[in-house]
Design a protein around this nucleic acid. Structure first.
Length: 297
DNA sequence: AGTTGATGGAGAG
DNA sequence: TCTCCCTCAACTA
């Protein structure tokens, strides 16, 4: 379930459960075994997310005591290292904060973090690598502003969007334009703002982009809190509309994502789908017209 | 038992 | 634009 909210939620969980503690690091599956052996027994300082990237910070092996650098990623002490995790499409990092026993790994566990009473298993990640502070900085430098970070700057994204002929649906998914939005938030935020996904970025008004950004901050912050993606307004919830709740693997209440052919919750028209850049796009052609007359606004 | 798809992205051509 | 990678649940047969 990995969009930006998943990674920020994970960063918080990992910091709470393992922050400022000595941890066992292993790779039952074996693919991260060499790096895991180097980190095993080191102190985990904290974890941090930038868009869909997760960085787990470790003090130099054998260094003890509280780190004054915690929360100040600009000045890393020598020897600090990170596990860089990217979940890709279907990676899962399951944190078990209260586990009296350490169970045998089930399935392909690439990375296991453990301390007495707690463990976390990573499966299916596209990236799990031991990196230096400089390598981490290079990944961050490529990423666009993240709506979930206090330092996220919407103007940086607007600089790209406002002059691009690419579809806004493509730009929202481009992690160098904006970091953290995935296929669900893309579909949903465009629906909420009644913008057709194929509309060129440069045809948006700055105020429209600002409204989208502000909405993403709210929606994704809620996603971090709940661990799911809910985007319907109070008047469109199952309870308010007297419709059955969504039954799906991720469970959130949405307007258009993966609802192709079903009736739009707002206007009743059939939700449409199309492949764009290898990813499924969903929108309501009536609520999100390509061209909108002044009268319609 | 085998196939498909999924909230992602890198690299080749 | 295509191909490939990672894993596993939910399909199909």
């Amino acid at each position: 379930m990995p969009e930006g909210h998943t990674l920020h939620r994970l960063a918080g969980e990992l910091t709470t459960v393992f922050g400022d503690r000595q941890v066992r690091v292993g790779s039952p599956q074996g693919r991260f075994a060499e790096s895991a052996a180097q980190l095993d027994g080191a102190r985990l300082i904290d974890a941090e997310a930038w868009g869909k990237h997760l960085f787990i910070r470790f003090a130099e092996s054998g260094v003890w005591g509280r780190s004054p650098q915690r929360g100040f990623p600009g000045a890393e002490p020598p020897g600090v290292r990170f596990i860089h995790v990217h979940l890709g499409l279907y990676g899962v990092f399951a944190v078990h904060p209260d586990a009296p026993e350490l169970p045998l790994p089930v399935g392909q566990v690439r990375l296991r973090l453990a301390r007495p009473g707690a463990y976390a298993d990573l499966r299916g990640a596209t990236t799990c690598a031991l990196v230096t502070a400089a390598e981490r900085a290079a990944v961050v430098a490529k990423a666009g502003p993240d709506p979930l970070r206090a330092d996220g700057d919407p103007d940086r994204a607007w600089h790209r969007i406002g002059r691009s002929t690419a579809p806004i649906g493509t730009l929202l998914m481009d992690q160098t334009v904006l970091a953290g939005v995935g296929n669900v938030y893309r579909a949903e935020v465009l629906f909420r703002h009644r913008i057709h996904p194929l509309r060129p970025g440069k045809t948006l008004r700055a105020s429209q982009w600002r409204a989208i950004w502000d909405d993403l901050v709210v929606l994704m912050t809620e996603g971090v809190r709940t661990g799911r993606i809910d985007t319907v307004r109070p008047e469109h919830t199952p309870e308010a509309m007297g419709r059955p709740p969504r039954v799906d693997d991720h469970g959130g209440e949405v307007y258009v994502y993966r609802r192709a052919g079903q009736a739009c919750h707002v206007c009743g028209a059939q939700v449409r789908t199309e492949v764009l850049g290898g990813r499924n796009l969903f929108w309501c052609a009536r609520c999100q017209p390509v061209f909108r007359s002044r009268a319609a606004r």
